[in-house]
Write a protein that binds this DNA or RNA. Structure first.
Lengths: 190, 190
DNA sequence: CAATACTTTCAGTAGTTATTGAAAGTTCAG
DNA sequence: CTGAACTTTCAATAACTACTGAAAGTATTG
């Protein structure tokens, strides 16, 4: 591999250029999702690599420090998106990406639900309790406000619940099942 | 309204306490979604307010500067999540939140798809073109690598496409239609 | 058209998050 | 047990993002 290629992170090889392109875009998009760019790039690198990758590979290909590589690799392991593997006759730790996109989806969905959706649902429950408890003993004017407020909360709760159900089903059904559902839905829309 | 209440942003009134609780959690969650906390809090404030809200209300209730209030309100308008309204006999601009959660969902989904999913799809298309063009003329060993690489990209593409279709349908069907779909899906799973 | 009421912008600053690189820690072969 | 090979941690710092408040801009009213 020519030096210039390694240093500039560009490559004359179209396969590698293609990999680079994917890695960059995936990293960029990570930002929108509260995942830091480097972690997303490492994930992408592993996703497009057929061979297991070690810390030094990450450092070299993405031009990051050992610390960053180590921290983010561990982060990805914690998310369950990559796994540690060991290669015979090599003491280093290698990593591979779970490449089944539906499994990836399932993992991400479950984690994000736990971290992001459930706390909101719990909060809404508490909010509703507080409002419910204070229902009686309000003046007539206030009462209407309270009703509106409660209705909004309930609608949000209902939405989150339906959404959650759908996503669960998507995960359960997987690509094949979804083809069928998609077909059925299309008929309903018509 | 007692001063202490205004200053500390807490309230003895359970309805208001409930609102505060929701606003805080919504803001906190915004962080996970690449939406800044303040913008999410303003959105939540508008969501739980029955009356239109003006810049000064936002400043007062969330203890932020005029600049911040103005910037984030505009950001929310740009996202299409809130609207400007004018009140008779008042020169100020007021804002209201689109309270239909399904509409909110539709708006958010469409924007995020445009900003986050489409660029990835385009990139994958380009990546596949690059790989496709270089298909022939590879050594046998490389060829297998290329095949694997292409397969992964294609799987991701397929997933994004299916996912997009499902979300589109969710938006089209709305809550009622989804109840039905949900029922059908449950049967399929069994 | 001038005064007023309001909104937006922006330079400076504060606060937050990510990265580095070296030191400390761990594991393993001999 | 020791040294070498490797991984993790962490304090310092760089990079980025959000916030403030005052100044500039834009209606609206009398």
């Amino acid at each position: 591999m020519p030096d210039a290629t390694t240093l500039t992170n560009e490559s004359a090889d179209p396969i590698d250029a293609s990999r680079q392109m994917f890695i960059r875009r995936w990293g960029e998009m990570g930002g929108y999702w509260g995942i830091n760019r480097t972690m997303a790039e490492i994930h992408a690198l592993l996703f497009v690599s057929n061979e297991p990758i070690c810390t030094d590979d990450v450092m070299e290909r993405l031009l990051v420090s050992r610390g960053t590589a180590s921290t983010n690799l561990r982060g990805l392991v914690d998310w369950g998106l990559i796994e540690r593997v060991h290669l015979r006759g090599d003491r280093r730790e290698y990593f591979v990406c779970r490449t089944n996109v539906w499994e990836m989806f399932e993992t991400i969905v479950q984690q994000r639900r736990r971290r992001e959706v459930e706390p909101i649902v719990e909060t809404i429950d508490k909010c509703l309790e507080m409002v419910g408890a204070s229902k009686k003993g309000q003046a007539a004017g206030e009462s209407e406000n309270v009703t509106k407020f409660r209705t909004r909360l309930e609608e949000m709760q209902g939405f989150l619940s339906t959404f959650g159900t759908i996503v669960d089903m998507m995960v359960t059904l997987g690509p094949k099942g979804l083809e069928r559902v998609s077909g059925m839905m299309t008929k309903m829309v018509r």
